[in-house]
């Protein structure tokens, strides 16, 4: 018997979470879970790796910090040093205190925007992108597990029914 793909709908987040744990325990592959809101603990139950996006953000912030220093150093010290308000611009370090606000702002600017761009690209979010949730109710109040049927389809089905699935749909791959 060949493997089939199942779309299983649930109407409660707690039931969904228990079901996911059960399915993982019985070693059936879960392709994806679609939920209308973040269900806490779902990523752990599905054994998803933690996201690295905050590490990336730290690096982006460092890039912003470096860019701001290089830019201000070139503009204020190298290209055209001036004596502004008795604060001569002949070395970066002596002038640094009045550059702190912009160094800070650019750090935040780079970190925030590059993080959001990374998130959008990694999660495939952009204008004109078609939504991929198989059932429109999963943005409203339903929860969907996209999973393999396992070796014994009827056994899997009865297990899912027992766990509280409200509908089970067989789909072609």
């Amino acid at each position: 018997m060949s493997l089939k793909r199942l779309h299983v709908l649930f109407d409660d987040d707690d039931i969904l979470l228990d079901a996911v744990k059960e399915i993982v325990k019985s070693k059936i592959y879960i392709h994806e879970v679609y939920t209308p809101f973040p269900v806490h603990g779902l990523d752990k139950a599905m054994k998803l790796k933690p996201t690295n996006i905050s590490i990336a953000t730290f690096i982006y912030g460092c890039i912003g910090f470096t860019v701001s220093i290089l830019m201000i150093n070139y503009i204020m010290i190298v290209d055209w040093p001036q004596d502004i308000g008795g604060k001569p611009s002949f070395s970066y370090i002596e002038n640094m205190p009045s550059f702190v606000p912009i160094m800070f702002e650019l750090t935040v600017f780079f970190a925030a925007h590059l993080m959001v761009i990374t998130f959008y690209l990694r999660s495939k979010l952009w204008p004109f992108k078609e939504a991929e949730n198989p059932d429109p109710s999963t943005t409203d109040d339903k929860f969907l597990i996209d999973m393999d049927s396992g070796s014994n389809l009827s056994k899997t089905k009865s297990m899912l029914k027992k766990m509280g699935a409200i509908s089970i749909k067989e789909v072609k791959e």
């Binding site: 994806e32 679609y34 990523d43 998803l48 996201t51 979010l125 949730n133 943005t139």
Partner: peptide, 13 residues
Amino acid sequence: FGWSGRAKDWQRF
């Protein structure tokens, strides 16, 4: 932006 609500999307979100 084609939001689908996958578990990984929510984790990143």
